[in-house]
Amino acid sequence: MQNNDQTQVWDKIWSAEPSYHWDALSLSIYNELRKRSGELKGKRVLEAGSGSGKISLCLAMDGADAVLADYSELALSQSSLAFRRKGRTATFLREDIRQLSLADGEVELCWNAGVLEHYEREDRIRIVAEMARVTRPGGRVVAFVPNARCLPYRMGKAYAEQTGAWGYGLEIPLESLREEFEEAGLAGIEESTLAFETGLDFLDFLPERETLKAAMREWAQGLSEAERAAFPGYLIVASGRVQER
């Protein structure tokens, strides 16, 4: 399990019912997963560090056999309730994602979003290795993490930490997950970024935030596609293929 301080942070977050309304960031993550998964009907898909389970629920509604693993009993309780409300079933596992109970090659896609940045490097490697272990050869491991090069995110996070407004405990902005994926033996590793405008939401921690956000959004919308590529998005998307064992 995570250390006690981190456990308390996330239990506090999951003690309130999360929103299951669709938002731009969730849609971006969902679309990236669908690009890599193809037809989902009958495929077993694991979210390792599932939190609210919002996106896993949508994958289940697309036909996936969803598996959700998280150390927080409160998070699993919330996601289980959301699945029941939609008339969908899933497997819910309360466990440490650094040591999953699933057998080797039991799922066809393993993913998480907003998880690995809450662990130090050694544990990130352990988690990605476990994600690779439980994924069948030829299957995909995909992870989404906050991008250290996303300036609005870094500005807002730093200000929130300085003023005591940051509520997410340890969170390490990352420049890449390539080393972690290579250590796990994954092949065909690809990285990209997405959700530039979501990064602007972190400016909400700053004074004069509405003026600043409006100015930056207007500026970004005026950029050409080539210019936008010079300014990375809020999330890094890392993807790798599991090799034959």
Rank of each mutant, 00 (worst) to 15 (best):
G87D: 06
L93D: 03
A113N: 10
F83N: 11
V128Q: 10
A69E: 06
I55N: 08
I127T: 11
S52H: 06
G51Q: 07
D104F: 04
V141D: 09
G139Y: 00
E108I: 02
G42F: 05
M61W: 02
A103F: 01
L57D: 12
G38W: 14
N112D: 13
G105Q: 08
D123Q: 12
T91C: 14
L100G: 05
R85P: 00
G87Q: 02
I97T: 09
V141H: 00
G51L: 01
I97M: 08
A60E: 07
Q78F: 00
A48P: 09
L74E: 09
S37A: 15
V107N: 06
V142K: 02
H118K: 04
G63T: 03
R126T: 09
L74S: 04
R36P: 12
E108R: 10
L57K: 05
L109C: 10
E73K: 01
V45D: 08
K54P: 06
A143E: 04
D123R: 04
G139V: 03
K43F: 07
L81I: 13
R94G: 07
Y71D: 05
V128R: 03
V107T: 11
K54W: 00
K86S: 10
L76R: 04
A129K: 15
V45S: 06
L76T: 08
A75W: 02
N112E: 12
C58Y: 14
F92Y: 01
E47R: 06
G53E: 13
V115T: 12
K41F: 09
D123K: 11
V134T: 03
A66P: 14
R84H: 05
L46N: 11
R140N: 12
G138S: 09
R98V: 06
G49S: 11
A90L: 00
T135Y: 01
R124S: 04
S52P: 14
P137E: 04
T89S: 15
E120Y: 13
V67M: 12
T89Q: 11
L57S: 10
E95F: 00
F83A: 13
C110R: 05
A75L: 05
D65S: 13
L59Y: 07
S72F: 01
E39M: 07
S80F: 00
R44Q: 11
I97P: 11
Y119C: 01
Q78L: 10
V107W: 03
F92G: 15
L68T: 13
A129H: 10
